[in-house]
Structures are given as structure tokens and as C-alpha cells.
Design a protein around this nucleic acid. Structure first.
Lengths: 348, 348
DNA sequence: TGCAAGGATGAATACGTATACATAGAATCG
DNA sequence: CGATTCTATGTATACGTATTCATCCTTGCA
């Protein structure tokens, strides 16, 4: 090593100087640091990783599209950077690309891998568990029991939203899910349906087709064509809810005037004044931290042990979209002002 | 190597089998592949990187917050993944953290590093150029000439927006920037001011303080308190514009009714029906591709040569916020049997 | 049949680091 | 002052791969 000869010491001493400085004599240390500075030496993390069998890098496989996932990625990054680790990011557009991606991932000996997607098949999860790679599923409730898993409490959160609606007197609720195959979607619907049923309210399901704004916007068509509007719409994701809100407005249907609406996720946009959506806020920071922690912990648990899973409670955010006007409560149940002219929207 | 002994060959042959399969005998190859499959062997990218002195990883240092940056990150990821490379992501909240981050970055021998931030000091850029790391500045016009740089044509784009406003008859325009110190902000204001001046219109500057929704929302207060409203507001970034729109609505000021408004960036949300903002769309995919390409090209250019820079033109998106009502609104295509139906809002 | 050419494979080495072990000098203690 | 412990450092090795060089076997051709 250049630095070693420049400082007149052995390579081993240089290594010690950077890892355990306290064991090297002050004079020597100074000489080494001077030489290193002069030569612009920086330790090679690749070589270190090879030797130490640990890269200090955590990988994350995340869908390439969607506001929610973008937020999640940021959360991972912040959290890992804070703890001195690095984030290797993989985005995928199509579920089919995940396989290829994972193959590439496996070559880097990551300290852990976060799998963020609610639609990875359970069989695939089990298979990946065998690779010896320490992985953790994020936002995929059904993965719990197969691999370590981190999620918000989808069912309880949705139940909380439903309770909120029931308390406001909603009797007919429509649940608009993103993708019925997503385990998050199912859990959320479960929580809503159960709670509403016990409150004597109905809860039908409609699938938007994707967790995107466009899907919500399009689904508004189908809502508009219903014989009668529901009292409230629970949307399975905030971004879909934004689309639904904008789509319904196209037909003159607004929240909370014509119906109430809730979302799920607690995206930053939910608190934008333009939407001001009632939603369940996922504790992003906390979730990311748990995921990173669990991923880096290594796969100490043998394959036959049920892996640890973390479920964190979300927080209800009350926005305009479920705010009952404190005016005359005897507002007709049928769409008010639907006849003509701008509706109550102008009252704000 | 386990696989080697299992297949009864040498480690060298195994390596060949994975890199240049055509030079190894079909029978041997089959045996090796069988053994590899049985033992769950996957090549070690760390060791490969150490030997080949190239990691196949591109790093990106990106601000942790803001819709725009989240989109950029996704763009990088998609683009790199498509070309078989990996993305090592670093987010920073505070500009001061960048130094620490870069120190960590340097240890991994990345193939290239993308520096995404419009506020990195030029001195620091020059210093980093010396590290031998191949880097490219993203969205930082002032960096051109110091390090390779990739940006949208901020000045021309802003000029195009300004021209659009001038054509619509705006004589008094307010430019609301994000951060005056950002080189993008300055370039955009330059383009706007120049064009408007030559059209005989005025263009004052107001600083929102950050490229965030909240900053725009708060800045709306100051707009409301102006003696008279401008004909149009050019906002330096879409996210700020969203905040401005929502903030102004609070005071009963809406676009395009009371004033026109433009943004900059072309975020997905700009085409959401709730905003439908006129903006300059950055060709995200193309920009990301250029950045990745340039970063991975390596630092073949010596320090004294002016590095290549890429400037890509953006595209004007015309939204509602600069739509002059074409006189008495034509009867909107109201849906049959729905009474008077939705108002002009639904007129597309 | 003998020899050259080529194809397939093995042996050896280097990449830059961490670390166990060995060594030498200094310091401590009886 | 000799024996002993401790401290600072050097030596050697291993991590898993790519690659050069050498070797051996096959094949074609005279």
C-alpha cells in the first residue's frame, strides 16, 4: 500500500490506524494520517466488505411508481444514512421484473434486503428465504409468518376509519380498493367491513385497479353511475382517493357535502389544503426504522422458526372530507343541490 | 470454491463458465451449472468488483425532501436498472450533511456519482472533481464548466412560459422563486424577466423560501397583501405552485379567474385535475439517462478540460391555470338525466 | 505416423483489506 | 538484575473473483 510505504510502516498498521486508532502509537498515527492526507487515500469499502463479509449496505426493492412508494424510499434512505449504512435501491415497474432484479441483488452480499410490495407471491417469498439473504417484507401483511415483516396495522387502521364514519352516521359505505390481490387491500377491507357490519352499516367493495391517481379518477365514473350515492367512500390509498375526489368533482360530487371520504397512508398531499383528506397516517419514519433494523439483523432465526414481525399502529387524521357541516343537520340524504348551479362548494 | 470441487473442476473454469460460457466445453458447463444450482451458488459481486476495479454501481446524492426529487430518484433508478446497473442512494436533509455523505460515498468505488442539488457551492464541486471520482451535477446549471452537468434548459423553458403569458396579455407578472440561491431559480427568473421585459411587461421577484408546498402556501399571504394582484404569477417550481394555488384559494383568489399561474418541473400532480397547472415539463427520463450515461463514462477528461454538459429542452404544458375563458362558457356536455349537471368545471 | 494447431482446463497471482499470530522492545516487579 | 507482562508493530493469510500463462489432449493434415 502506498500510504504504508510513505509513512514507513506496514499495511497492517495503516489498517489499524483507521479501524482501531487507539492501539497505534500517537507518533505513528500522525505520520500515517499525514501520508494518507497527502496521497488522498480513502479506505476501500469493497475490499473491506470482501474481507469482513459484510457490506454495510441494505437493499430495497420497491415499485417504481406511486406517491406512497416514493415516500417509503425516502424514509428508508434517511433512516439508513442516519445509522451510517447505505441504501441500494431497485425499482421495478412490472411485477415480472422482480425476479431478474432479485437475481442481480443476490450478487451483492447485502446486509439485508427490504422487499416492499404487497403483491409478491408467498411461494416466492418462501423461496427467497432459502437464499440465506436476510430479508424483510414491507407493507405486505400476508408475508408475516413466512418472512419477517413490517407493516402498519392495516386492519385496525381501517377499522378506526370505519368507526369514525359510523360515528358520523354513515349507513351505506363503499370501499374502493386499489388492487384486490394486494394483501394490504384485503386487510383494510376486512377491517372496514367488520367494523361497519357491527355498526349495522353496509360496505360494498369496488376495485379501482391500481393504487394510482388515474385509477381513482376513472373509478369515479362508476361511482357516479350508481343508482344512489353511498354515504361515504373509503378509499384504499390516499393517491387513489385524490383521483376519486377530483373525478367526482367532475360530476359535481364533492366531499364532505355529498358524501364523506377517507383515504389510507397519510401522504403529505393529504394535508395539502386542496385535498385535506381524512386518512390513516402511517408512521413512515418508525416503519422504515423497523424495516432497516430487522433487515440488518441478519438471518439468525432458522428457517423453521416463525420470524418476528412488527405491526405498528397508525394515526387517524381528520380532514375536511369527513367534516360534517355544523349547520342544519337535516340535510337531505339525496344529493343536495344536484339540480343546478354550483353547490355548497362555494360556501367555503 | 465449493462449486468447483463439486463439479470436479478448478475455480478458474467456474469463473469462465459464468463470464465467457462459450469457451468452456458443453459437458463441463452442464456439470458446473448443475453443481451451482444444487449448492445455491451465486457469483460474488463484491469480489468481482475488487478484482475488476469497477462496481457497476452508480451513486446519487439527492435532497431528501420534495416531490421533484422523489421523481428524479425514481428516474435514476429506472434508467440504471434498465441498463443493468445498480443505484446507491444517499439522501440528505441538510446541505451540511453532504460533506459527511460524500466521505462515505468515496469509500465505495462507484462507477460514477450523480450530484443532484442546485445549491452545492462551486468550490466544493471543484474540490470533489479532484477525488478522481467521476461525477456529474444534475439540475445545477452553474456547475457546467466545473463538472459535467445535466439540466433542463431552465432559462429557455422559463422564457417559453413567459412568452405564453405575454401572449395572453399579461402586463404585470410576479415571479415567485423557491430559493434565490439556487442556480435553477436564478436561471428561471432570468429567462422570465428577459422575455417579459422585451414584451413590455414587468416582472417582480418574490422568494418563497423553499421549494415546498408549505412555502408556496405561506407566500400566498404576501400575494394577498399586495396592493393589487398581478396579472399572472410564475412560480419557480410545481410543488410551490400547488401551495400557492391552495393558499390563494383561501383568500378567494383562483386561477385562471383572478390571475394566471404557471409552475415549473412538470410533476405528475400538475396534470391532476385538482390543479391542472400550466408548467414546463422536464423530460425526466431523458435527463436521468444522460446523467447516468455521463456518470458512468468515467473521468476520461483531464481536470483542465471543460467537461461536457447536457442541456435538454423542456416542453410546455398548458393547463387550466392559464386558460382564458373563451367568453360565455359553452354549455358543458351535461350528462343526460342529471338535471343541470356540472358546471364549467366539467367542460374538460 | 508424426507434428502443428487449436481447444479446454489447471495453476498461480493480484485486487485491498482485516486479523491472528509472531516478535521485539519497554516497562514492571520480585 | 532477571523474569515477566504489556505495547507497538511486522508477517502472513484469507476473503472470492478475473485473468495470464502453462499444460494437456484432441484434431487435422502432410
Amino acid at each position: 500500500m502506498d500510504v504504508a510505504v510513505a509513512a514507513g510502516v506496514s499495511q497492517a498498521t495503516v489498517a489499524r490506524c483507521f479501524n482501531t486508532p487507539e492501539v497505534v502509537a500517537p507518533g505513528t498515527r500522525q505520520r500515517i494520517e499525514a501520508a494518507a492526507g497527502r496521497l488522498g487515500y480513502v479506505p476501500n469499502a469493497i475490499a473491506r466488505s470482501l474481507k469482513s463479509q459484510s457490506t454495510n449496505i441494505v437493499g430495497a426493492v420497491v415499485p417504481a411508481v406511486g406517491e406512497y412508494w416514493q415516500n417509503v424510499v425516502t424514509g428508508f434512505s434517511r433512516c439508513l444514512t442516519a445509522s451510517g449504512r447505505q441504501l441500494l435501491l431497485f425499482s421495478f415497474l412490472d411485477q415480472a421484473d422482480v425476479d431478474d432484479t432479485l437475481e442481480a441483488v443476490a450478487q451483492y452480499r447485502l446486509d439485508g434486503l427490504i422487499l416492499a410490495s404487497a403483491t409478491i407471491a408467498e411461494a416466492q417469498l418462501a423461496r427467497m428465504r432459502q437464499t440465506g439473504l436476510s430479508l424483510v417484507a414491507f407493507n405486505h401483511p400476508d408475508a408475516a409468518g413466512i418472512v419477517p415483516s413490517v407493516t402498519v396495522d392495516n386492519e385496525a387502521g381501517s377499522a378506526e376509519l370505519a368507526r369514525h364514519l359510523a360515528d358520523l352516521g354513515c349507513a351505506r359505505v363503499l370501499y374502493v380498493g386499489g388492487v384486490a390481490a394486494a394483501s394490504t387491500d384485503r386487510a383494510r377491507f376486512r377491517g372496514a367491513a367488520r367494523t361497519l357490519a357491527s355498526a349495522g352499516a353496509t360496505c360494498n367493495y369496488m376495485e379501482a385497479g391500481a393504487f394510482t391517481y388515474e385509477a381513482g379518477y376513472k373509478a369515479a365514473d362508476r361511482v357516479d353511475q350508481m343508482d344512489s350515492l353511498p354515504d361515504a367512500i373509503m378509499v384504499g390509498g390516499d393517491e387513489v382517493a385524490f383521483g376519486m375526489l377530483d373525478g367526482l368533482r367532475q360530476y359535481g360530487i364533492t366531499a364532505p357535502e355529498d358524501l364523506l371520504m377517507t383515504g389510507f397512508d397519510g401522504l403529505p398531499q393529504a394535508s395539502w389544503a386542496g385535498y385535506d383528506l381524512t386518512t390513516l397516517v402511517q408512521p413512515a419514519e418508525q416503519l422504515a426504522e423497523h424495516a432497516a433494523e430487522l433487515a440488518a439483523r441478519g438471518l439468525d432465526t432458522p428457517s423453521d422458526v416463525v420470524p418476528p414481525s412488527v405491526v405498528v399502529a397508525g394515526t387517524l387524521r381528520r380532514g375536511r372530507t369527513t367534516r360534517r357541516d355544523e349547520g342544519p343537520p337535516a340535510r337531505p340524504q339525496s344529493r343536495p343541490g344536484r339540480g343546478c348551479g354550483p353547490q355548497s362548494r362555494a360556501s367555503r
